[in-house]
């Protein structure tokens, strides 16, 4: 049985689950603990979906697909904590540890925990070996001389809430106006024709594009709020596919969605999103992306089931 850990409003999981055998999947929504019962003990574990009565045990687990949890009901945590946040943290830690144990037993699919993870800085350093990369700076305290001229956009490294009901989009700024008491991440603005996104699925690739002028700004996500644009499937050249594979091989990721800008026919790297949303590119499962991901999950799950070491006797605490 495939165990998917996610949140209740993860649309990408909703869509990919349509192509997985329903009876063979248990979806755990980490933001809805009241819908589930669980017991991990020295001899094994049992997880029950109380809504569907579906049950997963150490005897039936074959694969763990970890989705990134997002909490729609953010907890306003006071300085010394609160019991609601304590409950969430305890649940998070248990299932993250369960995931790591499954990974150590070779039972995870697509997404793996990266001890040697690549954040924005490391991605840009590696990307320079494989793609065009616009000049960038992470800086604080002093304005780098290169930023005195040209056009630059500001980005954020993390998803940390900024407060006041605001979100941090990519935005063009005059770096000379930035308050240098904050840490900044800026990159030269790329004047490209289109944005290209590529989903990498264990060696296979699905590419889609959208014209830059359809976004109404520098951040493609902003268009999702006002006028959803379509992202038709597009082709990559063999050289581009080799570059993408080279980046993934070097970083160790097996799955992820790249963002690029195409300028004068060439790909310029923006970032890799290793476990975010991707199913809006094929919301009706008609372009092949959802099938590619579902097939990869099923294929890896089949391999797990065929493993004599684990088949039918996956025990905890050994």
């Amino acid at each position: 049985m495939i165990f998917i850990s996610t949140c209740s409003q993860d649309e990408t999981t909703d869509i990919v689950m349509r192509e997985l055998p329903t009876a063979y999947v248990l979806r755990f929504n980490i933001d809805k603990p009241d819908d589930f019962a669980w017991d991990f003990h020295r001899d094994g574990f049992r997880i029950v979906d109380k809504v569907s009565d579906k049950e997963l045990t150490d005897k039936t687990l074959t694969s763990f697909y970890l989705r990134k949890p997002m909490y729609f009901d953010l907890i306003d945590v006071p300085k010394y904590g609160c019991v609601e946040n304590w409950r969430r943290e305890e649940t998070d830690e248990l299932f993250n540890d369960f995931f790591r144990e499954c990974q150590s037993r070779g039972l995870v699919t697509l997404v793996r925990s990266q001890n040697n993870k690549y954040g924005k800085l490391r991605q840009l350093l590696v990307a320079g070996k494989h793609f065009h990369v616009a000049p960038w700076h992470f800086f604080h305290g002093e304005l780098p001389a290169e930023l005195e001229n040209g056009r630059w956009v500001v980005k954020s490294m993390t998803q940390t809430p900024i407060g006041q009901g605001k979100v941090f989009f990519v935005k063009e700024v005059d770096p000379r106006a930035l308050d240098l008491s904050y840490p900044w991440f800026v990159q030269e603005r790329i004047e490209g024709e289109e944005e290209v996104t590529v989903v990498y699925i264990v060696g296979k690739m699905y590419a889609a594009n959208a014209p830059r002028d359809s976004f109404g700004g520098d951040d493609s996500r902003k268009a999702l709020f006002v006028n959803p644009i379509s992202w038709p499937r597009c082709e990559l050249s063999p050289a581009e596919e080799r570059a993408i594979k080279g980046f993934m091989d070097e970083t160790g990721y097996r799955f992820g969605r790249f963002d690029f800008i195409r300028k004068d026919g060439e790909l310029w790297f923006l970032e890799l999103n290793p476990n975010g949303q991707w199913a809006w590119l094929d919301e009706k499962s008609e372009h092949g992306l959802v099938s590619m991901v579902a097939d990869a999950i099923k294929s890896e799950d089949q391999a797990h089931r065929a493993s004599a070491e684990w088949h039918g006797d996956i025990r905890m605490g050994i």
Partner: peptide, 19 residues
């Protein structure tokens, strides 16, 4: 989804924050 991709949560574990 995009909002929450952007906003995130201070509770997201460190080893998943980069994902």
């Amino acid at each position: 989804m995009a909002t929450y991709c952007l906003c995130g949560s201070s509770q997201v574990p460190d080893d998943q924050r980069s994902w």
